[in-house]
Structure formats: structure tokens, C-alpha cells
Computed example of a mutant assay.
Amino acid sequence: MHHVHSRQDEFIYVPEGEPPLHTDRGEARLRPGMVAGFLAGGTAHHLENRTDRDCVIPEIGDRTAGDTGSYRDDDLRAVLGPDGQWNFTRKDGKPW
């Protein structure tokens, strides 16, 4: 889902597959060996696999206390709890 984190930087590496990367600037096809990074509070992003083959995409980040995930195109909000687990609600705070 198209999202952005409030406090967590993200880094991805593509060892296998050719997923399109969607950002607020458009689409770019990633290929094996490519990397991408997303600053906290930066551009919203998501990956998509449009093929019948697997894509392997390790994601590196951390569990920054107080991080939230904003999903502009969906009625979803994620808040990282003090236990390190994501809590998902609707944008109005109602349980998902």
C-alpha cells in the first residue's frame, strides 16, 4: 500500500525480481542489484509485483518509537506501540 513513515527511514534491496516502485514522482522499474531509500516524512511509496515470478525485496528499517505509517489512498493508519508491534486503525481512530 502507498505509505510514508513519520520517523522511520526505509531502505530496500532487490536481489530477485523486477518490481515497479511507485512514488509521488511516478513509477520506476527496479531490477536485481538495485536499491532504494525513503526518508521518514519523505515521499510516499509502494512496490508491486506484476509478474508470475517471485520478487525478493529485503527491507531494512528500525522500530523507531512513536513512528506512524500514513496511507494516503486507504482508510488506514499504523502506529508503532511501546511493545514494538504495529497497531492498525482507520484514519478516524476506529479499530480496523
Rank of each mutant, 00 (worst) to 15 (best):
Tyr13Lys: 03
Arg63Ile: 06
Arg63Asp: 06
Thr64Ala: 14
Arg31Pro: 03
Gly61Gln: 05
Glu59Phe: 10
Met34Pro: 03
Arg63Gly: 06
Leu47Trp: 14
Asp52Gln: 10
Gly33Pro: 08
Pro19Asn: 12
Ala40Met: 01
Thr23Glu: 10
Leu39Tyr: 00
Gly42His: 02
Thr51Arg: 03
His5Ile: 09
Gly26Phe: 07
Arg63Pro: 01
Arg29Ile: 15
Ala36Leu: 06
His5Val: 11
Gly33Lys: 05
Arg31His: 13
Asp62Phe: 03
Gly37Gln: 04
Gly26Ile: 09
Arg29Glu: 10
Asp62Trp: 05
Arg53Val: 14
Thr43Tyr: 04
Pro58Lys: 10
Thr23Leu: 09
Leu30Lys: 05
His45Val: 12
Asp54Tyr: 13
Gly42Thr: 08
Thr64Val: 15
His22Glu: 06
Leu47Asn: 10
Ile57Thr: 15
Thr64His: 09
Ala36His: 05
Ala44Asp: 09
Arg25Gln: 13
Gly41Tyr: 02
Ala44Asn: 12
Ala36Phe: 05
His46Gly: 03
Thr64Leu: 13
His22Arg: 11
Ala28Gly: 07
Met34Trp: 12
Arg29Cys: 14
Arg7His: 12
Ser6Gln: 01
Pro15Arg: 11
Asp54Thr: 12
Val4Trp: 00
Asp24Glu: 15
Val4Asp: 00
Asn49Cys: 06
Pro58Leu: 08
Gly33Leu: 05
Pro15Asn: 10
Thr64Ile: 14
Asp24Trp: 05
Gly42Asp: 02
Ala44Trp: 04
Gln8Arg: 12
Gly61Asp: 06
Tyr13Met: 08
Gly41Gln: 02
Leu47Gly: 07
Val56Ala: 07
Gly42Phe: 01
Val14Asn: 02
Arg63Gln: 09
Pro19Ser: 08
Arg7Asp: 00
Glu27Gly: 03
Gly26Ser: 10
His46Ile: 13
Phe38Ser: 00
Pro58Trp: 06
Asp52Cys: 04
Thr43Ser: 09
Met34Arg: 10
Ser6Lys: 00
Pro19Leu: 07
Glu48Phe: 07
Thr23Gly: 06
Thr51Ile: 04
Cys55Lys: 04
Ala40Trp: 00
Thr43Trp: 02
Leu30Phe: 06
Arg25Asn: 15
Thr51Lys: 01
Pro32Gln: 11
Pro15Thr: 09
Pro32Ala: 06
